[in-house]
Design a protein around this nucleic acid. Structure first.
Lengths: 309, 309
DNA sequence: CGTATGCGTAAGATCAACTTATGCTTGATG
DNA sequence: CATCAAGCATAAGTTGATCTTACGCATACG
């Protein structure tokens, strides 16, 4: 019978690319991983990986085996979720990941709600780059994570992670009131098309999230969709900083509705036909785990509360 | 992560009822099984089994976990099948189970065909009671098995075993020509209803398969469906013996079409609206294994050949 | 070209799993 | 009711698998 622990190593190798990375993620030495994969390969009777330069890559047979590993591990995840459901009372640590700068609004409210309902639960929050959420979940460093996706930035399909939607909020264009072209319109201005709304700022400097983030990609592609290439001056992830910079006329930027509440003086906000979706992500098969379900429920009511304020 | 080896033990415990039986089937000591199940239970955090007299029974949580174990093991079986498919060439041992007395006709023809197509394959045949086929497959003593089912005898649904149909043949009523009521009609006589055909033999002694077999159950229920309780005189599994006994006027019995070919003198055969279905069984998920597929294909052509003789 | 990275093998250490030995409870039997 | 066998669980010891350490080799990178 194939050993599932070894299949897990193969799966991580497929995701992370090198044996060393797998070893690091799962707290082994590279040697141990190499040996175990060797055993797996011998048991399989088919070459599963071959060297390519100083790395290894999976053979077609290896990649097929990974799909089975995914299925098996998902089912095991489902099993532990059911077991946790059978155990009455909800307690123990819950590792929560959150996008950087997503913290201030949603996370505290969610944790407060969660603590009220399940005092025995020990939530542990850690900021994590959205690109690394999937790895963190698979490695067991994370149990749930708050993630985003934007229009124009397709979410990469990942069968090892399930997601449930939490919140869909419009994005706003933040600009300085002193700017030349359009006068301040105030929040919730009735919009035109994206091109009409962004067009006047085509030559303005822009403030976007840091390169390599989905927020950055969203900004660039939204501007491209409006027919121009943004001239990026500032790269800042924190939306309050974006608002502050926009307020003093340093450029135009995108901010989600949630952060417009305490916008500084002098910033003009224009609602865009462009949305950010917040979601809760967890390991595939883990959706029925009571702690996960509780977190999702708490996050939902927390988000409700934020919306009504 | 739950250990699949331990889940397998739990599954076998569910099927076999006692830890001792599990240990015997999987070539462990009872102590080892007990310890491993203890570890599994501790990891699960929920009671999985409880003592009942001097045995143990699964708790509801334990039974749920078994369904997950079934799913996981099926997927692993599928994975090894695919791996075997990726490995070119077909060889190695193939453990074949066959119903007792099913041997003489189908098995040799199938093996001949199989050897012709895949000389490297080493088929190993062993007779096995149909009730134990499922256990044998799960324990790995068997890879494929020829099994039957009859009308009136519902096949017990078993998610751990897959079956593909091989042959459907009518049953015949075998009686002596010297008998009082109906004259000999010869093979392939056009039938009436089951009650019409069996009715005349309601008071005759009967020859059935041994008690506890599906053949026996089929005979009893067919007679009951015809409106009488058979008076069973002989219990014999071998159909040629059944025919011989019927020929000398020792009673009426059921035989499948395949065995009617060399029927002795003095036996009258009446085709019945009653069928026996032969199937090939294998572990769930193993249907794509090349050796299994090859066996099924060989059995199919072998059966064709028998039919045309 | 030196240097760092990544993989693999060999040898020793560590830990999990299995067996043997033993005791307890339960159900069957005379 | 006494006796016995079946079945399970625990303790202690052994074995085997798995992991780490140490090292060599090939490859990319500055």
């Amino acid at each position: 019978m194939l050993d599932v622990r070894r299949l897990r190593l193969l799966r991580e190798l497929d995701r992370r690319g090198t044996i060393a990375a797998v070893a690091e993620a799962l707290a082994f030495t590279a040697s141990a991983v190499s040996q175990q994969l060797g055993v797996l390969e011998r048991e399989a009777g088919v070459p599963l990986l071959e060297r390519s330069g100083r790395r290894v890559v999976l053979t077609p047979a290896g990649r097929i085996l990974v799909t089975h590993a995914d299925a098996v591990l998902e089912r095991l995840e489902l099993a532990v979720s059911q077991l946790a459901g059978a155990r009455e009372g909800l307690g123990g640590p819950l590792q929560i990941g959150t996008f950087p700068s997503g913290g201030p609004a949603i996370v505290p409210a969610t944790l407060a709600e969660l603590a009220r309902r399940h005092p025995a639960l020990e939530p542990m929050v850690r900021e994590i780059d959205s690109a690394r959420v999937s790895d963190g979940l698979r490695a067991g460093e994370l149990d749930v994570a708050l993630v985003h996706d934007y229009d124009f930035v397709p979410a990469s399909p990942d069968t090892t992670v399930d997601q449930v939607p939490l919140l869909e909020e419009p994005m706003y264009l933040a600009t300085g009131r002193t700017a030349d072209s359009t006068p301040a319109t105030g929040p919730a201005a009735p919009g035109g098309t994206l091109a009409e709304l962004l067009g006047p700022w085509a030559t303005s400097p822009w403030i976007t999230a840091r390169e390599g983030t989905t927020g950055h990609a969203m900004a660039v592609r939204a501007c491209q969709a409006a027919g121009f290439q943004p001239r990026i001056r500032h790269q800042v992830n924190d939306f309050r900083t974006v608002l502050a910079l926009a307020a003093i006329g340093q450029g135009a930027g995108f901010v989600p509705e949630m952060t417009t509440e305490h916008a500084p003086e002098g910033v003009a906000l224009t609602r865009l036909p462009l949305f950010r979706r917040s979601k809760v992500a967890f390991r595939a098969g883990g959706g029925t785990h009571p702690a996960i379900a509780a977190f999702v429920a708490a996050a939902r009511t927390a988000v409700q509360g934020l919306g009504n304020r």
